[in-house]
């Protein structure tokens, strides 16, 4: 079992697996729509110029998430 951290702490260039979504309601729904379910592999790609949001590769697509949202996704660092 690797280290568990919220997604926004994942440093660019590293990969992780989604373990838990703590978001509720609509936000949770959107995350699920993006394919963020338990076990999904996520790679942090690139921070925006001000450091937030960060672009992640999720199921072949590049999705930018603000730290508020990313912090509600718990991942296991690979």
């Amino acid at each position: 079992m690797g280290r568990m951290i919220p997604l926004h702490r994942l440093s660019p260039g590293t990969c992780a697996k989604v373990r838990q979504l703590t978001a509720k309601g609509n936000t949770r729904r959107r995350m699920l729509d993006l394919g963020l379910i338990c076990g999904t592999r996520v790679e942090a790609l690139q921070k925006s110029p001000s450091g937030d949001p960060v672009a992640y590769e999720i199921r072949g697509a590049v999705i930018a998430l603000r730290s508020e949202e990313a912090s509600q996704i718990l991942v296991e660092v690979l």
Partner: peptide, 11 residues
């Protein structure tokens, strides 16, 4: 407060 946000960066 700002609502949730995700943005796709297409190829």
């Amino acid at each position: 407060i700002p609502s949730s946000f995700s943005l796709e960066l297409p190829p």
